[in-house]
Nucleic acid binder design. Structure first.
Length: 186
DNA sequence: GTTGAGCGTT
């Protein structure tokens, strides 16, 4: 009961130990150098790869760390989970994938970067399986992005996060005080 | 500094 087939990569809850760690919850501004600096304290690190969003060119907030030794990876995982980098609490697990996907020329086969989880009250009907690239070669498209704009979701429907509450934009929005009764201005 | 869940498309 509960034991898995050995040799499998495990699942999200229970990844099989390996030399590759996934680090999640990163600040968008944390660099591979920073990660390398931190994780190298536990043993030789062969490579750090921050995952970059193909569309925006920015970090997607997670990365992969390849250790030379699986034992070092295990120690690093235990030591670094919950650690704070650039003001964000990170989570570290053995990666369930060992490497990036093989590129598919002309068409992106992944999911859109922004997804709705359906638990914050907005847009739970949106299907998140839409590709966000249009085919470059075979599809007859221009290689551009889909018409759908995943980056214009209704953030106003969400409850503001602590981070957002500290932002100037939030201050500004609040100061509008859209009370209907106050339209008594003449 | 998009306000953040998240397993990668050189």
């Amino acid at each position: 009961l509960g034991d898995r087939v050995s040799g499998d990569i495990g699942d999200r809850e229970n990844p099989t130990p390996s030399r590759c760690l996934g680090v999640f919850g990163l600040s968008l501004y944390t660099t591979e150098q920073q990660i390398n600096h931190i994780f190298s304290k536990f043993g030789p690190v062969e490579k750090v790869q921050v995952v970059i969003d193909a569309k925006t060119g920015r970090s997607r907030g997670f990365c992969f760390v390849y250790f030379a030794s699986q034992d070092d990876a295990k120690v690093a995982k235990n030591e670094c989970t919950g650690m704070e980098i650039d003001g964000r609490r990170i989570r570290v697990d053995f990666s369930i994938t060992q490497r990036a996907h093989t590129p598919t020329p002309g068409i992106y086969m992944g999911k859109p970067t922004v997804s709705s989880r359906g638990d914050n009250g907005y847009d739970r009907r949106r299907d998140r399986d839409e590709y966000y690239y249009r085919g470059g070669g075979g599809g007859g498209g221009g290689g551009g992005y889909r018409e759908r704009d995943y980056y214009q979701r209704g953030y106003r429907h969400r409850s503001p996060s602590p981070h957002y509450r500290r932002s100037r934009r939030y201050e500004r929005e609040r100061s509008y005080s859209p009370r209907i009764e106050t339209r008594s201005k003449g």
